[in-house]
């Protein structure tokens, strides 16, 4: 039963992605009927191939719509601001050449794979930090920090409010 549910969900998601990709290409209306047929068959095959490992370890919770809404808010709000600041920071360091790098370790207290991936990607794109390694057992992050202020930092000192966002969106 669980297998079937996984398979059906993955196939539906793949079909939605296909619908987005193929929109506006139909001769009449938005989609053409033969394309829809081909997309449906391909979506079923994709579900068959990837349904088994797409939803392991708490993946079902990512289907809740308020998480997607929160993700959009995060994307255009704090994330875009942090990314712009990161780029200006890189520009400043390119011009002055002033760096003080090091690899620090901290624990943001995230448990699921999705949350950790989300936080690692956010860290890589925000000011002065780059995820080098993640200990999958204890959840420790090893982050290359371009301007080390504190050799034993807290999660808050390195990446600000992002662990909280990651917890709310992906855990």
């Amino acid at each position: 039963m669980r297998r079937v549910a996984e398979w059906a969900t993955t196939a539906t998601l793949a079909f939605v992605v296909f619908l987005v990709l193929a929109s506006f290409t139909g001769r009449w209306g938005v989609w053409a009927p033969d394309e829809l047929l081909a997309g449906g068959v391909i979506a079923l095959l994709v579900g068959l191939a990837t349904g088994r490992f797409a939803w392991s370890r708490g993946g079902w919770r990512l289907l809740e719509p308020q998480r997607w809404l929160l993700f959009l808010v995060y994307l255009v709000g704090p994330f875009l601001y942090a990314m712009a600041r990161a780029n200006l920071d890189v520009a400043w360091r390119v011009i002055t050449g002033r760096i003080n790098p090091g690899i620090v370790r901290f624990n943001p207290g995230l448990r699921t794979d999705f949350g950790r991936t989300f936080l690692a990607n956010s860290i890589t794109l925000t000011p002065g930090t780059l995820t080098v390694d993640v200990d999958e057992g204890s959840g420790d992050f090893f982050v290359h920090w371009i301007n080390v202020k504190d050799p034993l930092p807290t999660a808050d000192a390195v990446c600000g409010p992002f662990p909280e966002w990651a917890r709310r969106i992906a855990e």
Binding site: G102, I103, R105, T131, V132, D133, F142, P151
Partner: peptide, 24 residues
């Protein structure tokens, strides 16, 4: 880029003028 950084560290490249390297 995370995969590249991890691969670089595991292939033994030290960070330049690092004040601290916890992973090492």
């Amino acid at each position: 880029s995370h995969a590249l950084a991890r691969g670089a560290h595991r292939s033994g490249i030290k960070p330049f003028r690092a004040v601290v390297d916890r992973l090492e």
